[in-house]
């Protein structure tokens, strides 16, 4: 019979362990989310990130080794983004009829995200590549990585900032929009998707189908706008 440490060291270097650990951590996070009665601050992504970070730190496993296994889940972000075409198509008449307020909300939400993140970061003493890494943080991660590279930020830091932004958005959006008295699920979802990409979109789908569809549209449109506007923004303000 093999020593338990031998089994561990065999598994820890392989892909199966970290792929499984990611799914188990997510199931725990999702289970806690359901147990809480879908409270926004019990966020499944945040819980899974926390559990896996503790596990990696405790076992001395590098992120690179972890990602070797977890990349299969990461890869699905591509097809899932393509799948957003379906709710867009299903809500097409609603989207067309609200095109003007949607485009206005897109522009304001996107520019406020970039501008306020940079202004607050600079006021808090951040400079150089760390500050530039903040600019694309509301865009979905594949877009944000490319933008961060193009404008002189640190792509790996940007990924972390994008993810934290998504979790913050998912946690604050329901109480924030209730406090602001915004009841229209199109506007609620859309603003959440623009500011907090796919993690905000996942939260919006939990709340309401229309909110989720409009969040997905907001995420995709902000991905496009950020890719186009971020380089201009940096030229103007840096």
């Amino acid at each position: 019979m093999s020593d338990i440490l031998d089994i561990w060291s065999y598994l820890a270097e392989g892909q199966l362990l970290w792929l499984s650990a990611t799914i188990i951590a997510y199931l725990i996070g999702d289970g806690l989310f359901r147990l809480s009665g879908a409270k926004p601050y019990v966020n499944p992504v945040l819980i899974s990130m926390f559990l896996l970070s503790v596990l990696l730190t405790a076992t001395g496993t590098s992120y690179r080794t972890y990602f070797e296994g977890a990349q299969f889940i990461h890869f699905m972000l591509g097809p899932a983004t393509v799948a957003l075409a379906v709710p867009l198509w299903q809500n097409w008449t609603k989207v067309k009829s609200a095109a003007i307020p949607l485009l206005a909300a897109l522009f304001v939400g996107s520019v406020v995200a970039m501008g306020s993140a940079t202004a607050i970061g600079a006021a808090m003493g951040l400079r150089g590549d760390v500050l530039l890494s903040l600019v694309p943080k509301s865009a979905t991660s594949p877009v944000a990585i490319g933008v961060s590279e193009a404008i002189g930020g640190l792509p790996t830091l940007t990924v972390a900032l994008v993810l934290i932004t998504g979790v913050i958005g998912a946690v604050v959006t329901t109480p924030l929009l209730n406090a602001l008295g915004i009841r229209d699920f199109r506007g609620r979802g859309f603003a959440t998707g623009v500011a907090a990409h796919g993690i905000g979109t996942a939260r919006a789908f939990h709340c309401h189908g229309t909110a989720g569809a409009f969040a997905g549209i907001g995420m995709v449109l902000n991905a496009i706008l950020t890719a186009l506007v971020a380089p201009l923004f940096v030229q103007l303000f840096f």
């Binding site: 609200a98 003007i100 307020p101 949607l102 206005a104 909300a105 897109l106 304001v108 939400g109 996107s110 406020v112 995200a113 306020s116 993140a117 940079t118 607050i120 970061g121 808090m124 003493g125 951040l126 760390v130 903040l134 943080k137 509301s138 900032l161 934290i164 932004t165 913050i168 958005g169 604050v172 959006t173 924030l176 929009l177 602001l180 915004i182 229209d184 199109r186 506007g187 609620r188 859309f190 603003a191 959440t192 623009v194 500011a195 907090a196 907001g218």
Partner: peptide, 24 residues
């Protein structure tokens, strides 16, 4: 500093976007 920037900008962006949608 990053936490303040992310929390502040996310709250401002969601709020500004949703209010813009509502008033337009």
């Amino acid at each position: 500093a990053l936490a303040v920037a992310l929390i502040g900008s996310t709250v401002l962006s969601i709020g500004a976007g949703a209010l813009t949608f509502k008033y337009v």
